[in-house]
Design a protein around this nucleic acid. Structure first.
Lengths: 223, 223
DNA sequence: TATCCCGTAATACTGCTGCAACCTTCGCGA
DNA sequence: TCGCGAAGGTTGCAGCAGTATTACGGGATA
């Protein structure tokens, strides 16, 4: 899962990013609305976390702008402005949820799950492929009901591929699922992860194969 | 076990929270229905304790609201309004139990166990792993039919892992099971508990091992 | 008072992860 | 069919983030 966090306090943003990463969530960060808008055009975020008081304007104005651009990415407003009328204002303008600061990271992740559950269960509870059964919310993978342990980055690759099994996943999508844009990759780190993941899947007899589509990306198929 | 207590008398709430913690129950506290509703959306409570007379309304109105939101968490009403007709009212509206104030904490925990045993609740009555037999409702652990005593926090870690034995438990899930949102952890307290728990399990010949999945979490396996 | 729990912090350790070097495969054009 | 360049695959290695262990002391409990 990949989020865009629009928040001008860098320390808070950094801390939140670290906390969310422990839930397997990759976070991009923007401090200004203008930057944020650019990022939404370039990336496909699962959700957006939006502060209200920002250096270049009231955060809420971002919502209609984004909606007019045809984006229906869920937006959660995170703000100290948490009076009931302010919440109404935020929700009425099109936010999917509204969370007052300070808040628990647990609460935020749960709200994220709730928000992502809404449209016809965008978040599947269980994905099976070959002999793998994957729980993408718990980041849990089993083979024949026994746990299949993976390092974090390989796990994220596998879950991302599994969510779109039998469909190609762009290389850039994979990179986005595993790294945020502060973690730059100057080498073939992703290829290395896929290589190691393939070996593990083979050794474990997972019954799935990762195929490459040259110049495009990868896809996960049952054998 | 983690509960939500909805109660406007802070002293009573604090006292109850302490009392319950001695039974290994982690309690979050809300004084208003609105706050409580937010919390239920975000956390997965095992049960909810609900007062009737609250600053922002009659507690019972909370029940249909919660049910409509698709939550079937058991609800126990705790109130001074304990006339028979009032009890009927509470149960008819969907409460799972109704307990008049004042009450003994023992009775409350017993009723909690009863509620959690019911079909809807997926609470297992007994978990066995290695030579351990765990009763997650009584927080009771035995090895070869003899009692295996553990400090409270280690016990909570063990039970949480046991409930998902052979599956990974995210580090953040463990933290939520052991600490409520007022108890912040600034160090590696959880790691320390796990380390001490491991040693105890080894010394006792429990026949189970706690494995770490780097960057993800932990899991309990039989040897 | 003695005991035990528990958070903190210092230290040691482990293995994931990015990198880079090198090898293989693919697709295209001659 | 062959050659060539680019994309992808594989693997050793060093660095370091995450984890393990343990001692210490405050605080609760009896």
């Amino acid at each position: 899962m990949r989020l865009l966090l629009i928040e001008d306090e860098r320390e808070l943003a950094a801390a939140l990013s670290v906390a969310l990463s422990k839930h397997g969530i990759v976070t991009d960060h923007a401090t200004h609305l203008a930057d944020a808008f650019e990022l939404t055009l370039q990336n496909n975020y699962d959700a957006i976390l939006l502060d209200r008081r920002l250096p270049d304007g009231e955060g809420l104005t971002f919502i209609p702008k984004l909606r007019q651009a045809g984006t229906d990415t869920p937006i959660i407003v995170l703000t100290a402005r948490n009076e009931p009328l302010e919440r109404v204002e935020g929700l009425d303008i099109g936010a999917d949820d509204y969370l007052g600061k300070p808040f628990l990271v647990e609460e935020l992740t749960a709200r994220l799950r709730a928000v992502l559950r809404r449209p016809a269960g965008l978040a599947e509870l269980q994905i099976s492929a070959g002999r793998l059964v994957i729980d993408p919310l718990h980041l849990n993978v089993t083979i024949n009901a026994t746990q299949f342990d993976l390092p974090r980055r390989e796990l994220l690759v596998l879950v991302t591929l599994a969510k779109r099994r039998d469909k190609t996943v762009l290389r850039s999508t994979l990179e986005a699922a595993v790294y945020n844009y502060e973690e730059e990759i100057q080498s073939n780190a992703l290829d290395a992860h896929i290589s190691r993941l393939r070996k593990r899947l083979l050794d474990a007899g997972a019954g799935v194969t990762i195929h490459n589509i040259r110049g495009v990306g990868y896809l996960l198929k049952e054998d």
